[in-house]
């Protein structure tokens, strides 16, 4: 993979409505018993953003391993939030034929304010190494 992708920002994805029904479905799946939105919920949106990124670069999902994930919140998510996610390639390292891709995805609300930043490390396993 070419290091020129570092710093590249992909087109925003969204807006995505954080609906009470979707939050309840996600909460049920993880056994979450609180009224608040679970802290890992943004992965539902990050997935869409990440798939667009993988498509664009022609990377195959089955060769991608999730290395690290972190969420930093400016405020808790709430039902009714309309979030737009924007993925930026933060870093790229090559180790043993694998590409280690660092991404940073921002989630902004309808007023454009930053709500959450999700940073992820994706390992793209060298296919034809």
């Amino acid at each position: 993979m070419d290091s020129s992708i570092v710093g590249r920002q992909f087109p925003p994805v969204g807006p995505y409505l954080v609906s009470a029904e979707k939050v309840r479905e996600f909460a049920t799946a993880i056994g979450w018993e609180y009224d608040s939105v679970p802290p890992t919920f943004p992965i539902v949106l990050a997935g869409a953003s990440m798939n667009a990124f993988l498509d664009e670069l022609g990377l195959e999902l089955s060769l991608i391993v999730h290395g690290e994930q972190r969420f930093a919140y400016e405020r808790p998510l709430a039902d009714g939030d309309e979030l737009t996610s924007t993925l930026t390639v933060a870093s790229l390292r090559q180790i043993g034929g694998n590409d280690i891709i660092g991404t940073s995805t921002t989630f902004t609300d309808a007023s454009g304010d930053l709500v959450c930043t999700a940073t992820a490390t994706l390992v793209h396993r060298g296919a034809a190494a």
């Binding site: 609180y34 009224d35 608040s36 802290p39 890992t40 391993v65 999730h66 290395g67 690290e68 994930q69 972190r70 969420f71 930093a72 919140y73 808790p76 940073t119 490390t121």
Partner: peptide
Amino acid sequence: GAPVVDFGGKF
């Protein structure tokens, strides 16, 4: 259920 400010780890 306190609000989470930062959360994460490696797989």
